[in-house]
Design a protein around this nucleic acid. Structure first.
Lengths: 124, 124
DNA sequence: TTCCGTAGTTCAATATTTCGGAACCTAAGA
DNA sequence: TCTTAGGTTCCGAAATATTGAACTACGGAA
């Protein structure tokens, strides 16, 4: 937790960078999870929720890639790193792109967790 | 030109595979160029049109990745390999995804054709 | 038929990138 | 202070990408 966190502005966000960040299943799942918590999540919590254990160093790298691509913004709060999806910036730079990718994601993974009778006990 | 060309069917096409294939600027440009010629283009012609010279082996690898991701179909005609975008399959598997990526591509690269006076130097 | 040129593929070596364990840093409590 | 939690950085190992050279396959010319 030493170096200042660099976040690209809209002009610095590239399509290739976004697609690269999203082409990894772990990173895509993180983005999807972060979207469910607009207030932000720390790394440990987000990765726990997607049910994928990984070494801390690997996790840190994934978040760095997401951050440098412009997909997420991260903020230090105490010892935690709280991240959220930069929806406004993405909507400005490439309107509809993230939505299309997420629709494809849902289509590929037909809601594994939500497959209850209704949304009664979906909290996990 | 020996091994049979393998083309995934719709069920075998993955989102991660598509995003990975598209996150390379060269491959994205190839797809965009192929879309302009629905009848198909051979490798040499397509890469010539996008104005990117590269070694034959590199080009061959790019086409292999595009093919294995499901983005393109290739067919041998004589000594050539004619490829075209598998639009129907993509539309079936992930409707709207390719269109969204291409819209983002056009937005990032403001239409080389209409480059008149406005902004001569676009940063890379 | 044989030979040649074209178009692309495969191999193998090198270069780049990613993974992950260990050590480290910073903030918050006890 | 010491300890713990949450991340980061370093660096060697593993995986992947790049590409020159050798190769295959086809079509045309002689």
């Amino acid at each position: 937790m030493s170096r200042p966190l660099a976040h690209p502005d809209a002009a610095a966000v590239t399509l290739a960078g976004l697609l690269f960040a999203l082409c990894d299943p772990v990173r895509l799942a993180i983005v999807r999870e972060l979207l469910k918590s607009p207030a932000g999540l720390n790394c440990t919590e987000a990765t726990a929720r997607i049910g994928l254990a990984m070494p801390k160093s690997t996790c840190s790298q994934h978040y760095r890639i997401l951050r440098e691509s412009g997909l997420i913004a991260s903020e230090r709060r105490g010892t935690e790193l709280v991240s959220r999806v930069r929806s406004p910036l993405l909507a400005e730079r490439f309107p509809g792109l993230l939505e299309a990718v997420l629709r494809a994601y849902e289509r590929e993974r037909p809601a594994a967790a939500k497959r209850r009778v209704s949304r009664a006990s979906a909290a996990g």
